[in-house]
């Protein structure tokens, strides 16, 4: 299973990561977005983080599937 991870704005700069492909760690439990963050970044997902799978907002514990694009970003500040 391969997942495409994207980070934006402050997260991208803080963790020095723009985009990467990751193969989830083997295990029986369903792979969640928050678990992928932990695997890639090496620390828990911040409470304020927003998560999108395939460009749709999801909860951090949403399951991911092969080929998904999973994005992590800080609170939005447009307008």
């Amino acid at each position: 299973m391969t997942i495409n991870i994207k980070l934006f704005a402050r997260f991208r700069e803080q963790y020095r990561l723009d985009e990467t492909e990751v193969t989830p760690a083997a295990g029986d439990a369903p792979v969640t977005a928050a678990a992928l963050w932990q695997q890639v970044v090496g620390e828990p997902l911040p409470d304020s983080a927003l998560v999108a799978i395939n460009m749709e907002y999801v909860a951090p514990d949403a399951p991911v599937a092969d080929g998904d694009e999973v994005a992590f970003f800080p609170p939005v500040t447009g307008g």
């Binding site: 934006f8 704005a9 402050r10 907002y57 970003f73 800080p74 939005v76 500040t77 447009g78 307008g79």
Partner: peptide, 12 residues
């Protein structure tokens, strides 16, 4: 404008 400001993915 409220939906945009609270949820649209933009960062300043």
């Amino acid at each position: 404008i409220e939906e945009l400001k609270s949820r649209a993915p933009f960062w300043k």
